[in-house]
Nucleic acid binder design. Sequence first.
DNA 1: CGACATCTTGAGAGACCTCAATGATGGTGG
DNA 2: CCACCATCATTGAGGTCTCTCAAGATGTCG
Lengths: 249, 249
Amino acid sequence: MTAAAAPANRSNAPASWPACSACRAGASGVYAPLHRTTQDNISAVRTEFVSVRANALISRAGETPACVHTLRRGWAMQVAHLSDGRRQILHFFVPGDLLNVEALLLGERAQDASIRALTEADLCSFPVESARTLFDASPAQRESLLDYTRAYIAGLSRRLADIGQRSAQGRMAQLLLELWERLRARALVTDDSFEMPVRQEHLADALGMTPVHVNRTLGALRAAGIIGFDRKTMHVLDGARLRKVAEDE
Amino acid sequence: MTAAAAPANRSNAPASWPACSACRAGASGVYAPLHRTTQDNISAVRTEFVSVRANALISRAGETPACVHTLRRGWAMQVAHLSDGRRQILHFFVPGDLLNVEALLLGERAQDASIRALTEADLCSFPVESARTLFDASPAQRESLLDYTRAYIAGLSRRLADIGQRSAQGRMAQLLLELWERLRARALVTDDSFEMPVRQEHLADALGMTPVHVNRTLGALRAAGIIGFDRKTMHVLDGARLRKVAEDE
DNA sequence: CGACATCTTGAGAGACCTCAATGATGGTGG
DNA sequence: CCACCATCATTGAGGTCTCTCAAGATGTCG
């Protein structure tokens, strides 16, 4: 079930959809160049605005994605599944991210990973074809897309090196720093703290460890006074030491 | 030092370089469509044929690659480095692979990983610009490039899931199967065995484990009668059970 | 033959996992 | 409003996997 096929809630009147001009994804995401110059064109090709529930499947592995989505609210994750049910979270998407961007570059090829909502989330959908046309219109925009793709590949490579080479604390610190940076770029960090609607179970599947050990790892960082957290908020108390842990362990 | 800048051996006379028509990379690699129809064009843009020694640096992280290379003989690896010297091998290249293909797609961006020869190797070099022109000439060829890129990303994702979720035996089995498949596609497998000029230390850096444990893992697979190997040759004795280990562990 | 790289093996330590129980938190229905 | 429930976080104890350190064996090359 894709979001486009069976939205939990749908506004049928495009007029009632939230304005693209107010979109954080537009202002600071992959298509910022486009957003600055031709906002109307963006609105024109938006075919859907949906809210999905936590855990909703947004894009299914093995299918060719029909739409690119803007994640306007909530978090999502990209997941690879092993045949026996184990799963690896490849990437966390935060508000303002674009989902399925690879489809613009790679054409109508099947995805080998799913995208699933982590929380309740709002999505805007753009058919791949129209989005590609839009992106091709401006050289700056094309550049931005290629940069995004390069960064995506670099992110995968870095995560691979992290999981392959670093200890639990190092991996955790790397992930927290990455999220911290990305959320700060979206103005979602205040007072060195940010909402992190991710269960420890998700961190475990992203970092290649068990939920129990995620808990102990976070506990150690908290005991050291490096981070503070509760169920929903992560607080970076000592960025310098967090960076040191991320580098050294 | 890139291969182009300081080759170990260089044939100055293009006429003496091995013919593109006899190139395994051409016949079965990314640019097979091109190779079938316009071989002369390929030869025309080849700017270099070099042999490099084992361990030679072919493409340096942080620089923007000037050339795409065909690996005509020998093995190579793509490596990401951590600040403290630990390294993660992201990919093994086998004879017939193309190196730096991402440069065609992503433009003149800096690589974040190096490419290094694993063995003595022969390379043909093609400037990125000419290669891109060639590739853009045919739709089939463009498709092939996109397929290659998608497969590259899929490979990274799969390795990430392997290292994150599987045990040492599972990872090892996955890697052996992958190499087996890829080498078979190049007709480099005979009698279920193939040359594997890779030190156990390299397997360790690729799979996120220590050389000692690589040894014990291989030993266990050998003791189980699943594989046989010596310093240079890997023999798959029981493909079915190897696949089972790869899936289950 | 020596020098060197690589493989192999052992023994002990540490990191991480499994199983299992207890606490928190937030939502829901009575 | 409270009792109940599901979900998630936390903690303990013991086991397993993988690592570290170290020694010896094997192969390779000049």
